[in-house]
Nucleic acid binder design. Structure first.
Lengths: 355, 355
DNA sequence: TTGAAAGCGCTAACAG
DNA sequence: CTGTTAGCGCTTTCAA
């Protein structure tokens, strides 16, 4: 950071103000040949303005913070990618922050980001019942948009979500459509709003179709492959030992793909064929879903788009415009692959046999 | 960004300088009770110093840029995670930049980062024969460390790499250890230094053991699952059609895990059993490697550690110390899983049968 | 059309 | 121990 605007001004025999004007492409206030001369000098010298100084002067930093639980999780890395792409187009840089699902780290990051003078924040919060970070942001008047995880509170916060309840409905409604079907729902921890919503979705279906309570059993994993495996295996061994090769449910729905992969593995190991004997539907549609054998049917979440949309919304807010809508809810989609008997969304998979 | 150091100073009845001293925990120069009083006021008011202003004054920004090809690739996200963790500990924030393997974008980002006043840059470069970005950095006297990809040039650049040649040797030496073995090496594009090095490694083994040239065949994919699949399939169908269920090589080595997954799939589809008929070794050790069936044996790269080490090195440089070593080369490891007949590193898998 | 000057919020000598 | 005084590099009135 050697050469400054003052150097350019001196070389061009003008004032810093004039140089600043051409640097910022202000149409008025500079004669064409003066402008040209300055531009030439800038090019020759390879001068790069110090954006820190500019930010100090203007009060905006052209950077935003993105706080997510963990970039290593493909769902979040896709989301971040979506955000970065649209942010870059709008001229913003991105501070990446991994909270590890830890509300303390999350708050630390919010503080750091405020100090850095970010113009806005995209927050995938670690906790759904705590809005103290948001108070900070509100105090400082820094725009933010929530993503993925809903924070409950008196006020409605701007955010981009996916319709998790609808996703739950989609899966349950397919899996329970055939008479006599029964469902094992491996959900995530209930302190995630996503888990609660998805569960509401499957309960909707049970209720709306007047199904017996016993037709669905809900257990809780921790979103890991291992927990999906273990929970499924537990049911296999607790089941009557004589019935090796059978399973007490006709289908499994899991709150993410990783647990579905675990369940699939447990079933295969027990000699139960998928989807012939048991159908499986996951949630997320990560790349891995297409790579297991058979490829996993799943409820897809548009992670990239969520990142992009939240960034777009934030840009609006940073530009001073109130966004058109305070929250955006994206659709989920049921993707039929190899773990459901129905293989394509095109066919009418929901029709009850015999009708 | 409302309340400033001047406000605090006024409230405490001292000068800005004094407030600055306690803010920065300078031990000397402030009386204990003055210090206490100021700290109290800071706490009450929830004052957060503007780090932009601080940076302008000190000339350092406490942030570094990380440029990688694509955060969606699990290898890079792990690397970034490693960097972030150690950077955070040292008090730095991280600007994330995805270059998409595009040298133009990469240069853009280098420029942006310089303007942002980053204290340093970690660069996983998109091109191995272009060092013009580095000139920029050198001009500005901004420390940087290269990672993963070697940039050739007159000077040796500071960097953290993995011993790709050694990785190639490891795989080839196992795969070619048995008499009569032959190897299909599915490499990546040769304009990647990694590809060249890995190829050198397998060629080393051929030469050192006096094997026939024909014992290894090299083809080139693009690191995608699809290319691994296609390249393997080509060899299957070009092979004598009558010999369905056989393969012209006893083993496959691929330059990354994704292509190995593709190869595995092609083989399975052709009814060739892995590892009984053909052994496979990949490269990288991404999570997916453990999830395919059978789980993939592979040469592991310590992505997280590479990120962490490069960050550590950069911190040294940013602190003004020359790092102990200019380049760090990390070891690769051969991980035996299900696609090799040998299943554990513990056993002497390299012994020639009959000895 | 251009320049002078006053900051943006903080740090860092240098004096008291 | 504490205050004064300059800046850091750029933007932005307000005059000229």
């Amino acid at each position: 950071m050697k050469i400054t605007i003052a150097d350019i001004a001196r070389k061009a025999g003008v004032s810093k103000a004039t140089v600043s004007r051409v640097l910022n492409n202000r149409p008025e206030g500079v004669g064409p040949e003066t402008r040209q001369r300055i531009q030439d000098i800038v090019r020759e010298t390879g001068f790069q303005p110090n954006s820190l100084a500019r930010c100090l002067a203007t009060g905006k930093s052209a950077s935003v913070g993105v706080i997510i639980p963990d970039i290593v999780n493909p769902y979040y890395s896709l989301l971040v990618r979506g955000a970065e792409d649209t942010l870059k187009k709008a001229g913003y840089s991105l501070f990446l922050c991994n909270s590890d699902h830890n509300i303390v780290k999350e708050k630390e990051y919010v503080t750091v980001l405020i100090e850095k003078g970010v113009d806005g924040i995209i927050l995938d919060s670690a906790e759904s019942d705590c809005d103290c970070q948001l108070e900070l942001l509100d105090d400082e008047n820094i725009p933010y948009v929530l993503v993925d995880r809903i924070i409950e509170g008196p006020a409605k916060y701007p955010g981009v979500y996916v319709d998790n309840r609808q996703g739950g409905r989609l899966a349950a409604s397919y899996l329970l459509s055939k008479p006599g079907s029964s469902l094992l729902f491996i959900n995530g921890p209930l302190d995630y709003s996503q888990s609660r919503d998805r569960q509401n979705g499957v309960e909707d279906i049970v209720r709306e179709n007047g199904l017996a309570e016993s037709s669905v059993r809900i257990v809780y994993g921790d979103f890991s492959i291992e927990s999906g495996y273990r929970l499924t295996k537990d049911l296999l061994s607790n089941h009557h030992p004589a019935s090796f090769g059978s399973f007490p449910f006709t289908a499994i729905f899991t709150a993410n793909d990783l647990m579905a992969v675990g369940a699939l593995r447990a079933l295969k190991k027990a000699g139960i064929s998928v989807p012939e004997q048991v159908e499986i539907i996951g949630f997320d549609d990560i790349e891995l879903a297409t790579l297991v054998d058979p490829p996993l049917s799943t409820v897809s979440q548009p992670a990239f788009e969520m990142g992009a949309r939240s960034a777009g919304m934030l840009c609006q807010m940073m530009a001073g415009r109130r966004p058109r809508t305070k929250t955006i809810t994206l659709e989920t989609n049921l993707i039929f692959r190899g773990t459901t008997r129905c293989k394509e969304s095109g066919k009418n998979c929901f029709s009850v046999p015999g009708h």
